[in-house]
Amino acid sequence: MLIVPNQEEIAHHTDKTTPFKWSFEELRKIPEFGALVAFLALFIFFALSAPQFFSLRNITSLLTIIAELGIMTVGESFLIIGGEIDLSVSGVYAMAGFVFVTLANILTFPFGSLLAFIIALLVSLLIGFINSQVVLKGSIPSFIATLGMMMFLRGILLGITGGRSISYAGDRLVPTLLTGIMAYRFRPSHFWFIAIVIIFSFILNRTIFGNRVFATGGKKLAAYTMGVNVNRVKANCFMISSTLAGLSGTIAISRFNLANVSFGQGMELEAIAAAVIGGTLMSGGYGSIIGAALGAGIMGMVRTGLVMAGVPSYWYNAFVGIILVIAAIVNLKLRSTILGE
């Protein structure tokens, strides 16, 4: 049976040739479908169990947490889709924060914080580049290379600071632009996060680079034999992951006005969990940036929602653990037909 789509029909459906039908079979093909359902279900659950959960004040403070984890998750998801993993994101997060605070405190000329911010992002980019070269030139798994980088970065910070915190004393330009409080307690970071989700979702789904990220993560050798420079694709993904982690770190430090060595410890696993909850497959080649954002949203909701529902915050990890495993199983089941796994 051959159905050749006509031009007109295609024109209405960018990546589809048949009209979209509201069936489960169609819905499950959307990578972020599972995450969206879970997100809404949890939202309704917490809104019902804790009356103050659905208040503007809580929503905005929730967004603050989600934005910081979410920006890191977007980068991590991009890299996982490209077939690698980055455990050093939390180390980069802390390192970028420290570079930012230290330089902003030294650079006292007008807008010194902006220069400090740019350098902090460049340092993050450089760490991502080093990660990629260690993985690609050294032919070792990214799990090991970036685990080493994480320990190395934390070790350096501890060595230099001796464990002491550093307060932010620079100008207010960058902190205001990143996370200054606006009307109704919204913060710019909420909007930066949304912008980043839109931009990187677009890059992944609508550009040549994005197409090659999917291909490289899905089947590296096939991509290579079709003429894709897979090493360059992977290096770019490592740099995206690291730079977004650095941005996330500078946002968090700007909010706390304080840099500490233990800052963001364990956050790499939260970002990976959020990516998986968002529908990204650890095997690479499949995933969604919008899903990553929803995954980070679920993590943030669970964190604050549990407290509001009267559950001690110590239980947070237990809940996230269960959600993570359920999400991984459900996502795989949803994908089973289209991935043939």
């Binding site: 990546d15 040549i208 197409n211 090659r212 999917f214 291909a215 899905g218 089947k219 050798l221 096939a222 991509a223 034999t225 079709m226 003429g227 894709v228 497959l281 080649g285 499949y286 991935l339 043939g340």
Partner: peptide
């Protein structure tokens, strides 16, 4: 190539133009 020319987790059209999008 034997089993090496297509990425299973991508659509036919995205595979078709891979490398020459």
């Amino acid at each position: 190539h034997q089993d090496l020319s297509l990425v299973e987790k991508m659509s036919v059209a995205r595979n078709f133009f891979l490398g020459k999008e």
